[in-house]
Design a protein around this nucleic acid. Structure first.
Lengths: 112, 112
DNA sequence: TTCAATAGTTCAATATTATCGAACAATGGA
DNA sequence: TCCATTGTTCGATAATATTGAACTATTGAA
């Protein structure tokens, strides 16, 4: 598996980032990555009842293209991690309140 | 013109709010409402080069249905204002950093 | 009161995007 | 080598966005 393309820090846009976060599945991904210390493989992220692989792949791609996550192949896994510092550098103060909220309300109807 | 429906404060969802904010046109609307003191009519919000009325109406509707804005008819105008307190009550700390960023970067490519 | 202008909504057609099954590629282990 | 694992890509369908045209409601003026 090749390393996919990631936007440079200075190319992140606010609308793209908020758009990527504006979906319950992707919020759940980001919420779980926020608590993970190292990179996590896609399959270790819990996305609820049997979401098809192709749909999962799509959601990871949206997050990657928005610059929210980094994806690096390692063996047959794709290690996923938050680009916390990049987002913070480009849009200071934006991410942490969101992460705090979607950590706190995981599973509740507040997200969806 | 009748008063359109607004979701109750407790029915706001994080994904819906972020989704509504995940569009350059809607970010611009919200950024301008953030600096307005009273309600503003739709047409007084600057949405760039000749965006059709029906598209504008659509964007206001998305913001309203997400609970971000209030719309009240007054004469033949529709007065629009931010539901700042409601959003803050439901999702403390979420809105202000976003408003700060889209006020600061209006017109730059950081938004779109 | 009647007419026209204003301010926005709704409808219907088209364009864009999302979802998902099926096929595919790449890696690691038996 | 063969096969299970992990994810991507493709193509079809479903859902959503965009837009012009028609419509509604309100105001002010004749």
């Amino acid at each position: 598996m090749r390393t996919p393309l990631h936007p440079a820090r200075e190319d992140l846009s606010l609308a793209n980032i908020l758009y990527a976060l504006g979906d319950p599945v992707r919020l759940r991904i980001v919420g779980q990555l926020a608590t993970a210390q190292q990179g996590v493989s896609c399959q270790h992220i819990v996305l609820g009842e049997g979401l098809p692989k192709s749909t999962q792949s799509h959601h990871f791609r949206v997050l990657r293209e928005a610059g929210l996550i980094r994806m690096e192949p390692q063996g047959r896994r794709m290690l996923v991690s938050l680009r916390h510092e990049d987002v913070e550098a480009r849009f200071p103060g934006l991410l942490d309140p969101i992460l705090h909220l979607c950590r706190g309300e995981r599973g509740s109807h507040a997200i969806a």
